[in-house]
Nucleic acid binder design. Structure first.
Lengths: 349, 349
DNA sequence: TATATGAATTTAAACGTTTAAATTTAAAAT
DNA sequence: ATTTTAAATTTAAACGTTTAAATTCATATA
């Protein structure tokens, strides 16, 4: 491999001169710079980032630690961050925190060991235990918590996603279409949907719509989730039964908001099986804007978490802090947004 | 940051001893090892990979350079490779070669500059120009070409995907269902579908099915592609017209194989609009097994490129060569496979 | 002419590790 | 008691870069 020393020898100067010349340091004379840069070109020199990083304490590298809970969201983040970085001198390490919640800290340590200048932790659940580790470890590099939840360490940058906005807009949309009995369907085991649910109930209140304990209806989608994970076609199965119950229990309900897109897509298929046409007879709104929402029949109206905005903001925060570790921590909230497609329509009557 | 020197000081030994002790070198006495490892633990020592990499000429890092032409395939690869690496001591840099074909070489250079021990180039088009660069550059690290095409450098490891197998199986499947007039629908501007097309024609011959110049029908899917890229719902538009022409021209045709899933999904929707039911009246098979194939109505039968197998093999090849740069280059071919879902059925008559 | 000024370059140490070779220490063999 | 052998540890250099401080050298100033 061609090193600075090789160039130095050929140019008859010292490595230090070469180092400076290559980075266009003003102390080096024009002529020398040109000479050295030409030689570097000729020899096909490329800097060794490990050596540079070791010396400067900067690797020009960041880490992305993302949760694969929704693989699609995770990969969207990878793509987005890579794009942002492609316009900088940074590169990124990608690590996925698969399921196991307790190893986030170790994975962060790992990345730091690699010399990253900062880490974005995305959609991670931070347990008290992990938080404690973070607080006491006094890590060498800045962390940005992006859409992460649980107990975040004190005084760190973070980016949150405000689910309530999109939910409210969704309810408003349905209201304006004429729906007066709107309910929410969630997965029985839905882990972190509190914000979505409270946002929904708040919105019902805002529009003076009936809201009671029954406004939230739970279905069991374990089977569908499994299918989804294995990339198998969805078969509504169990959910058809649930929706039959739903229709009997709430015949006057004409529209539902679903806890996530997967549920929404299954509900649409279930309704289909029950002979209820979406959106003519029944409106459905999803959550997350997964790709498949474009391919269902009808295409699904859904609430989007703007991953690109969130990543852009996260990266900004991280770069800001890499530049200056002492700036005050920033907390940004990015609203969700309603994306209108084809699964909503005015109620029939 | 805690370094080996800190441990050495505390233990009253020399850094070299610590270095060896931490890696359980047999020359270090049991007692010392335990002592040093305890201290390392206490101090919260974590190795500095940049320093280690610099010294050893190994970074325990590899690069993935993937084409985003089909984002979904690209991200699938990222996930798969990350999973493989998570069980090793390697980490990976992720770079996407976005559109611009000519910079693959520079991106590889970039990664090498970072000190990677090897690179997987996935689904990249290697032009003659780039190939020449690769050949003459005498790169420091091994490259594995995975599903890449064009003119590959000589004597390198590579993994290919054999499209013909899946195509043949698809035709056989349709044949066994009773279809006797099968055609292929491709995108007008389909760039690299030769293998798929010749595979299809070969299969028709194998089953003594009529095959002529008209067996391949081209439609214009630019509009749909754009929608897909922007994550907008598909609207068959233009394609409906094309399929109307298709039906008039080939009324006896009861099944089609599509150049990719996107086309297949659009065709299904177009047929729907034309009042032709899939699969009862018309069978459709896609290509690529994108996620959306599970969510269409009916779910799409398609030909899968087993990304995981391909990545596993690519990683194996890379590791093998990192271990031993002089082993003979390996060329592996992975067959595509037919995935049966719901879009095929026996013809009506 | 001597001196100060400033520009260009070099020196030397550092970043945190590894490793071949040298040294010390202890134990075993004579 | 001396020599040999083996085990444990240290020395010293190296990996490729950067950088503060020192040096050289030419030029301008007094």
């Amino acid at each position: 491999m061609v090193t600075i020393k090789d160039i130095a020898k050929k140019a008859g100067v010292t490595p230090a001169t070469v180092s400076m010349a290559l980075r266009a340091d003003s102390r080096i004379s024009e002529k020398r710079m040109r000479q050295i840069q030409t030689i570097a070109e000729e020899l096909g020199y490329h800097p060794n980032f490990m050596a540079r990083g070791l010396q400067r304490g900067r690797s020009m590298t960041i880490g992305l630690l993302a949760n694969t809970l929704s693989l699609e969201v995770a990969t969207r983040e990878v793509v987005c961050l890579e794009k942002i970085l492609s316009e900088t001198d940074f590169k990124m390490y990608v690590s996925f925190a698969r399921g196991r919640r307790d190893n986030a800290f170790d994975m962060v340590r790992d990345l730091i060991s690699r010399g990253v200048d900062g880490i974005i932790l995305s959609r991670l659940m931070i347990s008290e235990e992990i938080q404690e580790k973070f607080n006491s470890a006094k890590l060498r590099v800045p962390l940005v918590f992006s859409r992460s939840y649980g107990i975040l360490p004190e005084n760190v940058d973070n980016v949150f996603c405000d689910y309530t906005v999109g939910v409210r807009d969704a309810v408003e949309h349905l209201f304006e279409l004429g729906h007066r009995n709107i309910r929410m369907i969630i997965a029985r085991k839905g882990s972190r949907r509190e914000q979505r649910i409270t946002g929904f109930l708040d919105a019902l209140r805002e529009f003076s719509l009936p809201n009671d304990d029954d406004s939230i209806f739970a279905v069991d989608t374990t089977a569908e989730k499994a299918k989804h994970a294995q990339s198998l076609p969805m078969v509504p199965g169990q959910v058809v039964e649930s929706m039959k119950v739903f229709r009997e229990k709430y015949p006057e309900c004409t529209a539902v908001l679903c806890g996530n897109d997967l549920i929404a897509l299954v509900v649409i298929q279930a309704m289909n099986k029950l002979g209820v046409k979406v959106p003519e007879d029944f409106s459905v709104i999803g959550f997350d804007n997964i790709l498949a929402t474009n391919y269902s029949q009808p295409a699904l109206t859904t609430i989007n978490q703007p991953s690109d905005k969130i990543m852009t903001e996260s990266a900004d925060q991280l770069f800001r802090r890499i530049e200056n570790r002492d700036c005050p921590p920033e907390h940004k909230v990015i609203p969700t947004e309603l994306i209108l497609r084809e699964s909503t329509a005015p109620p029939k009557s």
